[in-house]
Design a protein around this nucleic acid. Sequence first.
DNA 1: TTTGAAATTAACCAATTGGTTAGTTAATTG
DNA 2: CAATTAACTAACCAATTGGTTAATTTCAAA
Lengths: 207, 207
Amino acid sequence: MDNVEILKDVNTEKRILDAARKVFHIKGFTGARMQEIADEAKINKAMLNYYYRSKDKLFEAVFKEAAQDFFPKVFQLVNSDLPFFEKIEFFVENYLTFLQNNMCIPGFIINELAQNPQRLKEFFVEAHIKTPVKFLNEINEAIVRKEIISIDPRTLVLNILSLCIFPIVAKPIIETVFNLNDEMYSRMIEERKKQIAQFVINAIKIK
Amino acid sequence: MDNVEILKDVNTEKRILDAARKVFHIKGFTGARMQEIADEAKINKAMLNYYYRSKDKLFEAVFKEAAQDFFPKVFQLVNSDLPFFEKIEFFVENYLTFLQNNMCIPGFIINELAQNPQRLKEFFVEAHIKTPVKFLNEINEAIVRKEIISIDPRTLVLNILSLCIFPIVAKPIIETVFNLNDEMYSRMIEERKKQIAQFVINAIKIK
DNA sequence: TTTGAAATTAACCAATTGGTTAGTTAATTG
DNA sequence: CAATTAACTAACCAATTGGTTAATTTCAAA
């Protein structure tokens, strides 16, 4: 039994979702073609509608899955039981590792939300996702303890996320501006796992 | 002569470009429709091809214009003749103001480059844009003077850009996560003009 | 006023799009 | 084994897409 045969045996519904993920993540909703997804899955195009009814429904499945990866990961990491500065280090290290393995997801989500911002609010409601109040409180407590300077907790969270996510979504820009090839870019992201946490801690720590 | 008549008098080619900019910036290349651009410009669809030959050519014009705004602005601001820390403050303040007035551009450029990374390299060549060596050198000099900690100049530049640009492209995410309306979001961006520079300087300054 | 090029329009076209359908095969079950 | 259902396919379809074209209007120069 060769590789193709093995693939043929796999659950068709999953094969479609895998193919749809690949195509939608790269091309976005409007850029993706049902035929291309079918080709990628190596099945008849009618199967897409058979299992998912419509392009919209299939996209919805892919988007939810991506959002389910992207957002809960933040909250999960941020809820680790660690001292304040170690938590920042832990978060940056692990979120960046997650992003390294899911390079397309941030750009995909950002772009699709630009077309339909409402989508995220609906997702947050049905996935029971809320503002990370606990971590925001921990920041406030660190301020009270005079471990860190006075700063709007949301600003700090946004800064950390910016430093993690932007270099991922702006990969083509970074490679061009700084004249990096893919390997040099990867090494840079790898180094940022330590750098970003240090940068942030320097910015807020009271010595 | 009423308003519509005045608009009718305006150069058709410019009217088309204005409409194309509006539509492409929001919907992207694949999402934009020639008919929608024609409607927006209030002219016959055939005029688009009459003046710009094809959707690709029209898009090219819009993209170049956006890139021409987005990148040279960085280099222009970074070449201001100011002491090191003041330059960071000046840059953040002015680049964020530019982004406030061009909210769509970063997302537009990032998304289109994800589809076709090659495009930016070609643009950099023909627009004679190069790595901002002068500013990278100034960072190195500040390190030597022991004004700031030792840091890869490219890392510092990337961090500043991340802190400025990400909150713009991730507007829908931020509004949802932190439960902000448009007005609260705008106020937050306004406050970041001071915050970001201070955050960065704290992170690198040797006291 | 005539004339000829430029600007504009409505109608049209071929290709592509997402989606359907009628019919076939494979699997399940009673 | 028969029969019912589920999985699958090829062919097709209506709508939309970017783009063309032939005819008309506008307008400045001769």
